[in-house]
């Protein structure tokens, strides 16, 4: 029996879909069998970020309405053969699926896959309720902005009232230089308010834009800082103890000098 993980945030545009794509690809890189589920019915994106848009024949609503079998709707990734995507329907809306149907779908997927990752839509309405219905655990994505943290807090409360406690937090798009200057919320401020376990931090990385447009998640590129951060998060989700990355990439001449000397 695999594990069903929902990636959620409340606020839109903080990186849920990017995170789902990268974590899924990261699990696949480590040899796990993974299914990605796009629960954002009507505004699907995960297929684009994965570069699988042109392969869609059936979608999630076709499965729940019985127009096709689950296996027929699952699209195999173009690069990793143990990575699959269940795309969202584009011509329908969130009410096309019920939480009970999602629970059943997640149960079925968990039979065949090690990890089932659900990309949750923004908001707290039906789409959110559907996305979390079948999840065993939740990963919250936020950015170092007050508005995103407020929404994350609300989401954590709603998850708790659905009996899904202990969500894990990813802080996305951190800019170490701005944090250092005091212009950006730092991780401690965020954790103090949200009071949940930190799963990882993702630095702002231009390569994410490139990888999204190419349809190839950054985690597969060892040169990408964000990709490496995602890889670490995947290992933490698998139970490994991986220390947080040092994001002080630009440490200046003196810093590099100290590093060479072993300080």
């Amino acid at each position: 029996m695999g594990e069903v993980i929902v990636i959620t945030s409340g606020k839109g545009g903080v990186g849920k879909t990017t995170t789902t794509a990268n974590l899924g690809t990261g699990f696949a890189l480590l040899g796990k069998k993974v299914a990605l589920v796009d629960a954002d019915i009507g505004l699907r994106n995960l297929d684009v970020v994965m570069g699988l848009e042109n392969r869609i024949v059936y979608d999630l609503v076709d499965v729940t309405e019985g127009n096709c079998r689950l296996k027929q709707a699952l699209i195999r990734d173009k690069r990793f053969e143990n990575l699959y995507l269940l795309p969202a329907a584009q011509t329908r809306d969130k009410t096309a699926v019920s939480p009970e149907q999602m629970k059943e779908l997640c149960r079925d997927l968990a039979q065949d896959f090690d990890y089932v990752l659900i990309d949750c839509p923004a908001g707290i309405e039906q789409g959110f309720k559907n996305a979390i219905a079948g999840a065993d655990r939740a990963v919250i994505v936020t950015t170092p902005e007050v508005s995103a943290v407020r929404d994350a807090d609300r989401i954590i409360g709603l998850l708790e009232s659905e009996g899904k406690s202990n969500p894990k937090l990813i802080v996305n798009r951190i800019r170490p230089k701005m944090v250092k200057k005091g212009d950006m919320m730092d991780i401690d401020d965020i954790i103090e308010i949200l009071a949940v376990d930190l799963l990882g931090i993702i630095p702002e990385d231009e390569y994410i834009v490139i990888s999204t447009n190419k349809g190839e998640p950054a985690v597969a590129n060892p040169a990408s800082l964000a990709g490496t951060a995602y890889k670490n998060i995947v290992r933490r989700l698998m139970g490994e103890n991986v220390p947080l990355m040092n994001l002080e990439a630009d440490e200046g001449f003196f810093g590099r000098f100290k590093k060479i000397l072993g300080f």
Binding site: D153, R154, I156, G157, L158
Partner: peptide, 17 residues
């Protein structure tokens, strides 16, 4: 109608609650 005069909330109240 209960004699309880104080309500104990034994957890963090999050946004919207």
């Amino acid at each position: 109608g209960q004699e309880t005069r104080a309500l104990i909330v034994n957890r963090t109240l999050r946004g919207g609650q």
